[in-house]
């Protein structure tokens, strides 16, 4: 995953300082044979009672950075103690990514500050050493709704913490960015800072293309937040400009289309018939010459 969680980086650094020798005692000894892969963990709360955790494993060699594929990653959640809840095991794909969708209904453990530590662990193998990555977040939720006052269209956002599955305190003063999904990525259309009630709004820009029916999905995101990690909410509305799937102006008979312009076909036919008619006339004369010879042979002139 591209965006490395800043929190988790700091967390890991601190963690390493505290218990450095305990976790990676091997690191110095065998740089020759085994290597410690690099693992990153990305957390995304979809506000839809699901959390997407994605881990990415790579290894640095002289030739460059290689993705570690088919590596079994274990995802866990814990409240900070020794106890941790097993979430699932996923093998990394060809690009070294392992993704898991966690349904938050299963009961995610939280500590006193309502924080959860998510962990992605790689157990190590014949050639690679074990490694892990953690991220600590507080569960939150964003809701997106729409309102129209006269001609002004507004996207309304509200965000709040989630405590034991129910809405809790509103998120205040957090930056929320609003996007629309596009072919490859999300296009930013505005941003707002939440007020003390955890609410904010963004004006809906004109001329946004939706699907063929004009449906458009709006995403609101809190990104790489120190407390909440990545949280996103989304909602759809038919405010988009319907996308033209078959544009009328795409021409049918052009120089470059499979079918030729009519004038070309007509010209070609006229020219070819003209020429070949003359050829046939000449050949016809030859046939008549031969016929005449046969006639002469049958009835020789006196």
């Amino acid at each position: 995953m591209k965006s490395v969680n800043l929190t988790s980086c700091i967390f890991i650094l601190v963690f390493l300082l505290v218990i450095s020798s305990a976790v990676f005692p091997q690191e110095k000894q065998d740089s020759s044979s085994s290597k410690t892969p690099n693992i990153t963990l990305n957390y995304l709360n979809t506000s839809n009672d699901t959390i997407i955790l994605s881990a990415s494993v790579s290894i640095k060699r002289e030739l460059g950075v290689f993705a570690l594929q088919n590596a079994e990653i274990t995802f866990e959640a814990s409240a900070g103690g020794n106890e941790s809840k097993f979430l699932g095991k996923v093998k990394t794909d060809v690009e070294g990514n392992a993704v898991i969708k966690v349904v938050s209904k299963i009961g995610i453990p939280t500590d006193k500050e309502r924080k959860t530590i998510f962990t992605a662990k790689f157990p190590g193998g014949a050639r690679y050493l074990a490694c892990f990555e953690k991220t600590s977040v507080r569960l939150a939720k964003i809701l997106v709704s729409f309102a129209q006052e006269d001609t002004v269209r507004v996207i309304k956002i509200s965000a709040f913490q989630v405590e034991n599955g129910v809405p809790g305190k509103p998120l205040t003063k957090e930056k929320v960015t609003v996007y629309v999904p596009r072919l490859f990525t999300l296009l930013k259309i505005g941003e707002t800072t939440l007020d003390e009630n955890g609410k904010g709004q963004v004006e809906y820009p004109e001329k946004l293309v939706g699907d063929s029916l004009g449906n458009i999905t709006i995403y609101a995101k809190i990104e790489e937040n120190d407390i909440y990690g990545n949280v996103q909410g989304k909602s759809s509305i038919t405010w988009g400009i319907p996308k033209q799937y078959f544009l009328a102006e795409r021409p049918a008979r052009q120089l470059w289309t499979p079918v030729a312009p009519i004038w070309m076909i007509v010209t070609l036919i006229i020219m070819l018939t003209g020429v070949w008619a003359h050829y046939l006339y000449a050949v016809f004369q030859l046939i008549m010459i031969k016929r005449h010879a046969q006639k002469l042979r049958n009835n020789p002139p006196l």
């Binding site: 020429v275 003359h278 000449a282 004369q285 030859l286 010459i289 002469l296």
Partner: peptide, 27 residues
């Protein structure tokens, strides 16, 4: 083709040759 230079053959040959002479120039 049994060409003997009979008048009819000669006329036909000349016609065809003239037509084709014009055609080969155009083509």
């Amino acid at each position: 083709l049994g060409y003997t230079g009979a008048p009819e053959q000669e006329i036909r040959l000349k016609r065809a040759t003239d037509i084709m002479a014009a055609m080969v120039i155009a083509i």
